[in-house]
Structures are given as structure tokens and as C-alpha cells.
């Protein structure tokens, strides 16, 4: 690890100011990802601005949604009564990730910004365009069982590893951002990027910008939502494929739904085509399968990960069938 300076910010304004005053500064949440990457020298910031002392509040917004401070710990978000009642998919997604200890350390902001678990990204003997832009990608023709089936590019086939973000993508979350130039908000869908020719740029956050909060809009159907995750071990492993889904059935028809997949792309994958195919259709297995097919038609599996397409198909069908039968959460 290279030497770095450290300062603790008491407010968002102060954090942005502290970071702007230092070259190569980074914000520090729980450190569960950044400290590990700094030890591997994949990341080498010269200055850390600790943002864990920023407000850790979860408040109801005037329209009935929730505003979640970026410093809120993952455990605190998962256990919050209103999240459990109104957005169960979010609680479940968080609880299915990492371990009790890591969830106690990890912040909401850090979870959004966590980096891929691609083996080649971690292995400094391998070529990786994320680690050294322009070097090439050893995953494309390597062991790519855990890699992307959607939206990859010739430069990068890595996936985004977060569970929480898959639920946030499905629930129409909005990211609140503050930078030297002021404040702005970004729809969750536009926060993470596909790799394209610049896989080292993973989000639309500019250098120095701070995530201050994540907002959940009011979404009645989210009370009927859930998260399911398929992985190599029963607990404490990253997703091979996961799904966050919310479903509202009226008179036997799909009145409305939200669907996002995890483990399949460089970003949490909102399944727009499946949603489109299903809205207004009968809430029955044939329709769920057709919706899955509509989404998966675009999948482009690599040598080792075609199984993800089949897994995603089955997850979509069984999860929606379960929600249609009323076993929410």
C-alpha cells in the first residue's frame, strides 16, 4: 500500500472541499473494498476523505418515498422497518450479500462504487483494461464462468458484483450527488456504465463528486417484491445470477412489474424487454417464460458462462410465479 493522507469530513460540503484540495483523493466508506484494493495496489489514492461520519439517516420523503444517506450502513438499511415493509427486495438483496461483519462496515455509497470481482482484475500478472487501460483483457478468452452475458465489449467482460444495486435498479432508485459544481441527481439506471471502450470508467460520477444519498420513490408494488440469488455456496459468495422483482397482478393480468438481474453485466441489468413483454399479459407461467425469452434473446454468452442464460431464464420464471402466487418477500 502506498502512503496516503487522511481526513474525516463532518458534512458533504466539507468532504467535497477536502477532496478538491488534494490530488488523487478518494472518499472512504467502510473500506471493505477500497482497503483491499489499496493493499493489492490496484488502487493507489494519495489522500482519503473519510465520509463515514456524514449523516446516517433514512427519512421519509414528502411523497412517501425514502431518502437514504450515503453513509448509512448496509445492515442499518436492511433492517429498517419501512424498507422491510415497503421494499422487501432491497432488504433481501442486502442480506444475501457478504457477511454480517462486512454489512456492518459497508456503506450505501461504497456499495454502489464497489469494483468488479473479475479474477483478472485482481491478478496483476494478467492483462486487464480496467486495471491498465489499453493492456487488453485476459478474461475474454480465459476462464469466464463468472463474467457478463449482456452488454460486454471487446475491451471488458467483467460484471458488477453488488446485490444491493440490483434491487435499487429494479426499484427506480435515484442517486443524489454533490460536487464542486453543485448538486445533481441521476436515475439509478444511468449511474453505472457499460464498459464500451473505457471499462475503467464504471459510473457517471465525475472525479471529486460525492454520493450523498439514494432515494427510493414511492412504489406500491414494491411491497410485493423479492430478491433471489444463485451462487456457488449457500452463503457468503457473490452472485452467479440474481434477480430483483416486483409484481402487481390485477384480475389475473400483470398490472405492473419491475425486474432487474445481477451477475450478468457490467452494471445491474434492468430487464426492460421482459417488463415490456409482460405488462398487461396474463400472470401465468407461459407469459413469464415468454418475457424471459424476450430479455435473453440479447444474451451473448462467452465460452464458460452459457449456463447463466439458462439460470436467468429459470430464475425469472420461478420468481415471478412465486410473486404471482402471493409469496412476496
Amino acid at each position: 500500500m502506498i502512503e496516503f493522507g487522511y481526513a474525516r469530513a463532518g458534512s458533504a460540503d466539507e468532504a467535497v472541499r477536502l477532496a478538491a484540495g488534494q490530488g488523487a483523493a478518494r472518499y472512504l466508506g467502510g473500506g471493505t473494498n477500497l482497503v483491499d484494493l489499496m493493499r493489492e495496489e490496484i488502487e493507489a489514492p494519495g489522500f482519503l476523505v473519510d465520509v463515514t461520519a456524514l449523516p446516517r439517516e433514512i427519512c421519509e420523503t414528502p411523497d412517501g418515498g425514502l431518502l437514504i444517506g450515503a453513509a448509512v450502513k448496509n445492515t442499518a438499511l436492511a433492517e429498517h422497518r419501512l424498507v422491510r415493509e415497503r421494499y422487501p427486495a432491497l432488504s433481501r438483496a442486502i442480506l444475501s450479500g457478504a457477511s454480517g461483519q462486512i454489512r456492518n462496515m459497508a456503506s450505501v455509497g461504497g456499495n454502489l462504487m464497489q469494483r468488479t470481482r473479475c479474477f483478472y482484475f485482481y491478478d496483476d500478472a494478467a492483462r486487464c483494461n480496467k486495471r491498465s487501460p489499453g493492456a487488453g483483457c485476459d478474461a475474454i478468452d480465459g476462464f469466464n464462468r463468472i463474467h457478463a452475458v449482456f452488454g460486454a465489449s471487446p475491451a471488458c467482460v467483467a460484471t458488477h458484483p453488488s446485490d444491493m444495486c440490483v434491487a435499487l435498479a429494479a426499484l427506480d432508485a435515484v442517486v443524489h450527488i454533490e460536487g464542486a459544481g453543485g448538486k445533481r441527481t441521476v436515475p439509478f439506471e444511468k449511474f453505472h456504465r457499460l464498459p464500451g471502450g473505457r471499462p475503467q470508467v464504471e459510473t457517471t460520477l465525475s472525479p471529486g463528486e460525492l454520493i450523498t444519498a439514494v432515494e427510493l420513490p414511492p412504489l406500491t408494488l414494491a411491497a410485493q417484491s423479492t430478491y433471489r440469488k444463485v451462487r456457488d455456496r449457500a452463503s457468503y459468495a457473490f452472485a452467479l445470477v440474481s434477480i430483483a422483482a416486483a409484481l402487481e397482478v390485477r384480475d389475473g393480468k400483470v398490472h405492473d412489474l419491475r425486474l432487474a438481474l445481477g451477475g450478468v453485466a457490467h452494471k445491474p441489468w434492468r430487464a426492460w424487454k421482459a417488463e415490456e413483454a409482460l405488462r398487461g399479459a396474463p400472470a401465468a407461467e407461459a407469459g413469464f417464460l415468454a418475457a424471459a425469452e424476450a430479455e435473453l434473446a440479447d444474451a451473448a454468452p462467452l465460452r464458460d458462462n452459457a449456463f447463466k442464460v439458462e439460470l436467468a431464464r429459470r430464475l425469472i420464471v420461478t420468481t415471478l410465479s412465486g410473486l404471482a402466487q402471493g409469496d412476496a418477500a
Binding site: L28, G30, G31, V35, D50, Q101, I102, N104, M105
Partner: peptide
């Protein structure tokens, strides 16, 4: 009172 992994924690925090 909350459990954490001390290996990923920077002491200064």
C-alpha cells in the same frame, strides 16, 4: 458492540 472485520478496517477510522 457491533461486529466488524478488523483486517479491512483502517485503525485511524
Amino acid at each position: 458492540g457491533e461486529r466488524i472485520n478488523a483486517c479491512l478496517a483502517l485503525a485511524v477510522q
